[in-house]
Nucleic acid binder design. Structure first.
Lengths: 197, 197
DNA sequence: TAAATAGTGTACATGAATGTACAATATAGA
DNA sequence: TCTATATTGTACATTCATGTACACTATTTA
């Protein structure tokens, strides 16, 4: 079926993910991405269509490797407070580790592109909204499991959780040691009674 | 003393502040900023030295006009819980208003430039750290005033407050109606016993 | 082995962006 | 009015960046 590509498409997307994560969208020109992948721009357009299209693939890959993806595996059978506690603890540790890229690709892209980039802005908004929806779902699971009181405000808790998630990544860029990050996360979870340790 | 500038330097910085706030640092080239100001690049370099230098002036102006600057005016004579409650409420309302620029210039620039831009990165880190320090100071004032219990963890509270501040701006970019923002802020303040209403 | 096909590279035309050098301009004060 | 000087504009030499057209190359399968 014709000539085979001289590069591994999947590995290429991973490389691009790291570039975008680190440098942001606008800083990654087609020229610079092509040089990173050691292909010509022509091959780039042929393989990926456009920078926007590749961005979407890279963001998908980002979600797949994120320590926050554990939140997506929770359901009515999951001990919810333990899921929150363990996952946030794990995120703090991953994010603060020396060789980790700082910040969250989604947070970075949200501040760079939301309400700015005509094509990508809605895509990014949707990604944020689906995280929010997942937290609401998890809180509701906790209510069904009687771990969380029926009277708790689901939306408020989901907002606080999403804010905590974003904030851990954000703070990892500035003072950013694991102790501070976990101090914030632990106290937040405790103060809304979602901690279990 | 020579020819007078055809533009108002202070208004120019304000214009640049809005540009940077909205579009981010890299998206504001010297060319585009010069066009916005209706001066040539030559005049730009003459008047401001460099894009980096102007950025710093613009960020200073941003702080001066931010609704969060009320936090800087708190001291041992200030009712601290009321300060937190009122200021966060005000921020939610300002940020969600239709004609407001979305997001926080500092948050945007932190995700874009921290750990990336050699010259501006330390500058931005310092700005974040001084906000953190101010929150610690306010919490300590609250302790002296006996509004906040002596046993509270100052650092943890300051982290939570800074995270809330960042988060309000961040969320204003996505679902972003005032009700949601305030729901998050109110519940956060209540859950750490810094609410007074 | 030949054709079909998928991937690659060169080239083009164009505009954005940078920073500096030097000449032109306008104005305040002597 | 003259002159010192702050400000402005033109020009230059480069590099980055975009997207497409078309020719070239390698590989599969009929």
């Amino acid at each position: 079926m014709g000539r085979v590509a001289k590069f591994d498409r999947d590995k290429a997307i991973e490389k691009v993910m790291y570039e975008l994560w680190q440098k942001g969208y606008e800083a990654c020109s087609v020229k610079s991405l092509s040089e990173t992948l050691e292909i010509t721009r022509s091959s780039f357009y042929h393989a990926f269509g456009s920078r926007e299209a590749l961005f979407k693939e890279a963001l998908t890959k980002y979600f797949e490797q994120s320590p926050a993806k554990a939140f997506n595996e929770g359901n009515k059978q999951t001990p919810i407070k333990a899921l929150f506690t363990d996952t946030f603890k794990h995120i703090c540790s991953v994010v603060a580790s020396a060789n980790s890229l700082k910040g969250c690709m989604l947070v970075n892209c949200t501040s760079e592109l939301a309400n700015i980039h005509p094509d990508l802005s809605p895509y990014i908004s949707d990604a944020n909204k689906s995280i929010m929806a997942q937290f609401e779902y998890l809180v509701n699971c906790g209510k069904e499991r009687k771990e969380i009181t029926e009277h708790a405000n689901t939306k408020a808790l989901a907002l606080i959780l999403q804010n905590l998630l974003n904030g851990i990544y954000m703070m990892s860029k500035v003072p950013g040691n694991e102790d501070n990050l976990w101090l914030m996360a632990e106290q937040t979870l405790k103060s809304v009674d979602l901690y279990e340790g």
